[in-house]
Amino acid sequence: MSPARHGLILFAHGARDARWAEPFERLADKLRTLRGRDAPVALAFLELMTPDLATAVAEQVTAGCTTITVVPVFFGQGGHVRSDLPQMLDACRAAHPGVPIRASVPVGEDDAVLDALAQYCLRQLERD
Rank of each mutant, 00 (worst) to 15 (best):
M1L: 14
S2Y: 01
S2F: 08
P3I: 14
P3W: 06
A4L: 06
A4V: 08
R5S: 08
H6Y: 03
H6C: 03
L8T: 06
L8Q: 00
A12R: 08
A12N: 10
R16Y: 00
D17V: 11
A18S: 13
A18V: 09
W20P: 00
W20A: 04
A21W: 09
A21H: 05
F24Q: 06
F24G: 00
R26D: 08
K30M: 14
T33V: 13
T33M: 07
R35T: 05
R37F: 07
D38W: 05
A39E: 14
A39V: 04
P40M: 02
V41T: 15
A42V: 05
L43A: 09
L43C: 09
F45S: 05
F45E: 06
L46N: 13
L48S: 03
T50R: 14
T50M: 11
T50W: 10
P51T: 10
L53Y: 03
A54H: 12
A56I: 04
V57N: 05
A58D: 14
A58R: 09
V61A: 04
V61M: 03
G64Q: 04
C65G: 03
C65Y: 00
C65S: 12
T67M: 07
I68G: 04
I68M: 04
V70I: 14
V73P: 05
V73A: 07
F74D: 01
F75A: 09
F75G: 00
G76N: 07
Q77T: 13
Q77R: 11
V81Q: 03
V81M: 01
V81H: 00
R82Y: 00
S83Q: 15
P86A: 10
Q87N: 10
Q87R: 14
L89C: 03
D90A: 15
A91K: 12
A95R: 13
H96S: 06
G98N: 06
G98M: 01
P100C: 07
I101H: 06
I101F: 04
R102G: 09
A103M: 09
A103T: 15
S104P: 00
S104Y: 05
S104H: 05
V105Q: 08
E109W: 01
E109A: 15
D110Y: 04
D110T: 04
D111N: 13
D111I: 11
A112C: 10
L114G: 06
D115W: 09
D115T: 15
A116V: 06
A116T: 13
A118N: 12
Q119I: 08
Q119F: 12
Y120M: 11
C121I: 12
E126N: 10
E126R: 15
D128K: 11
D128Q: 12
